[in-house]
Design a protein around this nucleic acid. Structure first.
Length: 493
RNA sequence: GGUCACGUGGCCGAGUGGCUAGGCAGAGGUCUGCAAAACCUCGUACAGCGGUUCGACUCCGCUCGUGACCUCCA
């Protein structure tokens, strides 16, 4: 709608390490690719943060009017544990441990991933391609890399020749690495005899006969290298050059750096115009990671059944907690912070619930349009959700003041406030209204209203003891009564 | 060891060369029979030491501390 909404959107481009105005290649279309999960185990809260960051990006781009094709892959093969040459495929390993077919593992954890995304109200992408579903594209890309001279075959595997590539093209720009420093810092090359350089990485790996996940290729039976799938699938669905590629900070090197090199080698040009990296969720100052053992699953979060959790927290509380921090900063998980977020979200949601019932006045006590502009400006400034939330609390103050008859807003201003809050809270930040905040259940509401009448009668005859007893006993079962000039309202506690 | 970040009031966290972030907790007030909620007011935060500047929390340097990446990890 308004141009204000579409006003310049700035985001930090990892390639240049600065905020740049975002201008799509082919407006109004935007191509967005985000590295999805490797489906070999449950996602934890740190993973959620990354997907949440790009969910908000997707929501914002959509809100300002772009037609976004959002591709987020599922990695279901090729991701090895430990050392590149000696590691075992993560999914195959899990299949062995759980005594299941690899594809059963893939399905199981893909289902789990989707459940978690729904729980946190993270929208599904437009396309969710899998690596195993794109072997032909990956093999073709390996062939293009070989044709370019930057790949070589060794004993049924194909490797990317990083030093060779670096003599002709920049390598390391994205992650700020220098090839000499990388070479100087490499560890021992034990078990890497197939590679010409320790910096080289596999784009196709030979599979031994015992391997469960393998496919025929021009180089024999094998499977694709981890970095290749993203390059092949992003090219297929978004084109050789597309707008935004996102992922966690920890993927910057080597994963994304390798993607850049692969595309340049295979197709002759850089694949991505804007790279975005979300920062880590930490616990006691340390990155939450599967390997650290300091992660917890969404189920444990909801129930509070984990040694790091003092109690359970709702998915929306976590969403609020995470969005109160900028995506590019590390965020430390703590129970105190979670409890503060729980209260804050509750205050926001209470104001949202008041919104439909507000009565218009005959004056405008606040400039809603200016507030709206500040909200849009916050998001346009590199998705500054903490500043947006700060503005929303300004709106909360206005809503409560109107509700208390301390402030007047005309019908027009109220309408604008309502649509602003709906847009920012629900559409952009993606806070789903959670049931129970006062009147969703008609029968329960009718019942509580009866008690409110009884209590009002008691109070009318100055029988405060009875009135207080009604309030206290309802309070004991989780229903709080609140008196005001307009009458008594209730809510769950 | 190399590279790159970060260090903000009781807690979590934005931001800026000079002007109140916000949330939670705390204090006082208004309202109320009381309470809760709501609203109003309050805290003189920016790791330390130097430097640049009329002026720095914000720029530069050093010191200390913490973390990330360099190997799979969102």
């Amino acid at each position: 709608m308004s141009t204000a909404k579409k006003g310049p959107f700035f985001l930090t481009n990892t390639l240049t390490r600065r905020k740049e105005e975002f201008v799509p290649l082919r407006p109004p279309h935007v191509g967005l690719y985000v590295c999805g999960p490797t489906v070999y185990s449950d996602v934890h809260l740190g993973n959620v943060r990354s997907f949440l960051t790009f969910d908000v990006l997707y929501r914002w781009l959509t809100f300002v009017g772009y037609k976004v094709r959002y591709v987020r892959n599922i990695t279901d093969v090729g991701h090895l544990t430990g050392d590149v040459d000696e590691g075992e495929d993560k999914i195959a390993r899990r299949a062995r441990l759980e005594q299941l077919e690899p594809m059963e593992i893939v399905q199981k954890y893909t289902n789990g991933f989707h459940d978690v995304m729904r729980l946190f109200n993270i929208l599904p992408p437009s396309i969710e391609p899998t690596a195993t579903g794109h072997l032909i594209e990956q093999i073709a890309m390996v062939q293009r890399i070989l044709a370019s001279g930057f790949g070589y075959e060794a004993n049924g595997s194909v490797y990317f020749d990083v030093p060779g590539f670096a003599t002709k093209h920049p390598y390391g720009e994205l992650s700020g690495r220098k090839i000499d420093e990388l070479l100087a810092n490499t560890r021992d090359t034990e078990g890497m005899e197939e590679k010409r350089s320790p910096l080289d990485f596999a784009i196709w790996k030979k599979a031994d006969p015992s391997h469960l996940m393998k496919w025929p290729s021009p180089w024999g039976e094998g499977f694709p290298g981890w970095h290749l799938e993203c390059s092949a699938m992003s090219t297929k669905y978004l084109g050789g050059t597309f707008d935004i590629h996102g992922g966690g900070m920890d993927l910057k090197f080597p994963h994304h750096e390798c993607e850049v090199a692969q595309s340049v080698a295979a197709d002759g040009h850089a694949p991505v115009r804007y790279w975005m990296h979300g920062n880590m969720l930490t616990v006691n100052g340390r990155k939450m990671a599967k390997s650290e053992g300091n992660g917890f699953t969404p189920e444990e979060l909801l129930t509070g059944d984990h040694k790091l959790l003092e109690k359970g927290y709702s998915a929306m509380t976590v969403r609020f907690f995470m969005l109160q921090c900028h995506y590019a900063s590390t965020l430390d998980f703590s129970n105190a912070a979670m409890q503060a977020s729980e209260k804050g979200l509750e205050r926001l949601e209470k104001a949202m619930a008041l919104l439909p019932g507000l009565k218009p006045g005959d004056a405008d006590g606040a400039d809603i349009e200016a507030l709206e502009h500040r909200c849009h400006a916050a998001m346009n400034d590199d998705l500054n959700t903490p500043v947006l939330i700060a503005e929303l609390f300004e709106a909360v103050r206005l809503i409560n003041s109107v509700n208390d008859s301390k402030l007047k807003l005309t019908a027009g201003a109220l309408e604008r406030l309502r649509s602003l809050m709906q847009a920012m809270v629900r559409d952009v930040l993606g806070f789903r209204a959670e049931a129970g905040a006062g009147g969703d259940d008609r029968m329960l509401d009718a019942l509580v209203q009866e008690f409110i009448h009884l209590r009002a009668e008691a109070k009318a005859r100055k029988d405060f003891a009875t009135g207080d007893a009604i309030r206290d006993r309802l309070g004991a079962i989780g229903i709080a009564l609140k008196d005001s000039k307009e009458g008594t309202t209730w809510e769950r506690t």
